[in-house]
């Protein structure tokens, strides 16, 4: 890994972390509902610098984020890690298999969907074993995730275009 790559990953992780922290300050009326702002950075990283860099940014963001908020290795950490890794993986796989099919918005939607599915699954396994409760909130969460996902995708798209221009 070159020094420039490390510098990029550090900078992007810092941005992801800032957004992640900012988001955690907001009250969440529905548990496990997040805007997923950090995914803006993950997606941008994935498209511009590749899968490895994106996964690094995600891992750094999740671990450091949980250390800052004092939830390291706690339940929130498990949910955050599961959601983060699954969504990054889903985007990476889709992008490598079908590079031209989806743009940033589509990728962001896929990320949001898999993020939510993995978190709902983890929440079911770890915390609430009432399948009907999970099924009841699943469409609501996926709907909200679709809205935030498309918004995040649009923002990523703008960010990528801006960064490409500067390069």
């Amino acid at each position: 890994m070159q020094l420039q790559d490390k510098y990029r990953i550090a900078l992007l992780s810092a941005y992801a972390l800032a957004l992640h922290g900012f988001e955690s300050l907001l009250p969440t009326p529905i548990p496990w509902l997040k805007l997923g702002l950090a995914n803006i950075i993950t997606l941008t990283t994935l498209i511009l610098y590749g899968f490895r860099a994106a996964l690094m940014v995600t891992l750094i963001r999740v671990v450091l984020g949980s250390l800052f908020t004092g939830t390291f290795l706690g339940p929130a950490f498990i949910l955050s890690m599961g959601g983060g890794v699954t969504s990054t993986l889903s985007m990476g796989i889709v992008l490598s298999l079908m590079p031209r099919l989806f743009g940033p918005v589509g990728l962001s939607l896929i990320a949001a969907l898999f993020h939510n599915i993995s978190q709902l699954f983890l929440a079911y396994v770890l915390f609430i074993q009432r399948i009907e409760a999970i099924l009841l909130i699943t469409p609501v969460i996926i709907f909200l995730g679709t809205l935030t996902g498309s918004m995040n995708g649009i923002v990523s798209d703008m960010l990528i275009k801006n960064l490409k221009k500067t390069n």
Partner: peptide, 8 residues
């Protein structure tokens, strides 16, 4: 609209 693909 231009920046999104049909699949998106």
């Amino acid at each position: 609209l231009n920046s999104t693909t049909i699949a998106d």
